[in-house]
Amino acid sequence: MVGRLPDRVFVIQVQKVFMPVNVLVVDDSKLARINAGKALTQLQPDWRRVEAASAAQALDIVAAEPIDIALIDFNMEEKDGLTLAGELRDMHPTMPIAIITANIQDEIIARARALNASFVAKPLTAEGLQGFISGASLRLKSVGK
């Protein structure tokens, strides 16, 4: 059980002299993006967050700017999160990707694993996200980020 999240107004963090970590949050739910933001801020206040409300928007962002990590909702209209993750994986074979969904079916988890993506259950909490974020930051350090 998670305690209360800090009562802070979320501010997009644009900082760090050395190459900040860019996190892409893809979710068609604004509420879910806010929650993801809270969890991220709690874990890594220095990371920069970029939001996309659909798979198409996410692909545009990835094409336009450097993205280090992606948190992707599974259940989205038009293109679902696993499909988007597959496309991103093709473009960035090592990018840490997490599929975030309340759909905790074994089949979905298995498909995420097959794409070398992590699975994090909704609703997103700092604790739930911590494992993935720790792993991702290690991986980023190992590649020099």
């Binding site: 739910s29 604004k30 509420l31 879910a32 259940n75 969904t101 309340a102 759909n103 905790i104 079916q105 074994d106 089949e107 979905i108 909704k122 609703p123």
Partner: peptide, 20 residues
């Protein structure tokens, strides 16, 4: 939007568990 997301989380949790 919030209702939709809440419903999504709860119903998905419920249905996904049943599916599993």
């Amino acid at each position: 939007e919030a209702l939709s997301e809440t419903g999504n989380v709860i119903l998905n949790g419920c249905l996904a568990t049943m599916a599993n």
